[in-house]
Write a protein that binds this DNA or RNA. Sequence first.
DNA 1: AACTGTGAAGACTTTCACAGCG
DNA 2: CGCTGTGAAAGTCTTCACAGTT
Lengths: 210, 210
Amino acid sequence: MDRRDIPDTTIQRLPLYLRCLLEAQTVRMPVVSSSALAEMCGTNAPQVRKDLSYLGELGTRGIGYDVEALIAHISGVLGIDERRRAVLVGYGRFGSALLGYPGFGERGFEIVAVLDSDPTKIGTRVGDVTISDVRELESVVPATGAEIAILATPAAVTQAVAARLAAAGIRGILNLAPVTLSLANGVAVRQVCLSTELQVLSFHLAQGPL
Amino acid sequence: MDRRDIPDTTIQRLPLYLRCLLEAQTVRMPVVSSSALAEMCGTNAPQVRKDLSYLGELGTRGIGYDVEALIAHISGVLGIDERRRAVLVGYGRFGSALLGYPGFGERGFEIVAVLDSDPTKIGTRVGDVTISDVRELESVVPATGAEIAILATPAAVTQAVAARLAAAGIRGILNLAPVTLSLANGVAVRQVCLSTELQVLSFHLAQGPL
DNA sequence: AACTGTGAAGACTTTCACAGCG
DNA sequence: CGCTGTGAAAGTCTTCACAGTT
């Protein structure tokens, strides 16, 4: 099974499995069954087995999945067994919250640069990095070797910044601004919009009780 | 067509359409075609037509969709034509960033209470509200009439807080903590996890060029 | 006996092609 | 003529049932 043949929906669930497996590990469960894992993740056992079967034959019939081995395997498929470098663009309300988020480091992501356009912020040291001028993006990104960018910029400038990041060699963008990016293919984009999520919730409320 | 028959995938795209339509409105486009809307959203024209057709016959053949009428209609379906009240639980890094986020207000959401457990924060005025003690959740939530909760709490306490919110009458939860919630059905949950998103991007990078 | 791995069935989504209408 | 609305086709994802393994 080639990794390219793993369904998108499965890929999106792998980080969830990983989180639950790490939790199982802290509770000292050496082995986990598809149904136990399903319960932890809020899915069902056949879904778990199907998903994991795309990665290879990782379980033992009659027993279950070895937690440590499965963690290692999923990490490898996700490419987080080696450290991945990211730039954070936009050090406003969201940007500063993100920089301190421990979840990134725990999963092997390192924020190696922070860019902003505000002269009062540029040059300030935040955490382990110093805020750089977004105008120097073209030199900072290649210098740090970052492949991923996290965009927490004002909507109006986001498309332009994304295009420059792509040109500077960034190959994955996590966009928190409420803007649809249009970029050459070859750059993966994940869009997160909290306002969108609330609207989906609102729809469910509007459906009335059940 | 009953609203209950609208596919989930369509519902998730409605906020996106809404954003693009509002943008069209600021550019003074009175009418928009399915292909124009598709380009703005990064989808394709048949997808747009199919999605909108679930809401009724909203377009005019030969012409397109009336922007203002379509905004009104989608807002109605999403239930954001009336103001929706939300509680924010957890006033840490993320929580404080969220409170100031203008996108919520723009879409008809109002944060009517903020809850935290830190005694140094409780009683502090932030924006238009005063931070309440999370222990008073059971009285604060009914008093404000909030239906939605935004959870930006530490992972360890999130499941317990969610269960209490559900018991207090909350019917929709936007969960930012990296925890799978298990709740009685009747409560809609949307999970947002930035760490998960980065891992999905990492997978795409790991696939190598193309 | 317990649990995985998987082909096949079923459900859901997207895409297509064109009829229908202003 | 241009663009929407939609049934039908194609594609994708999930669920199921059970064979296979320890």
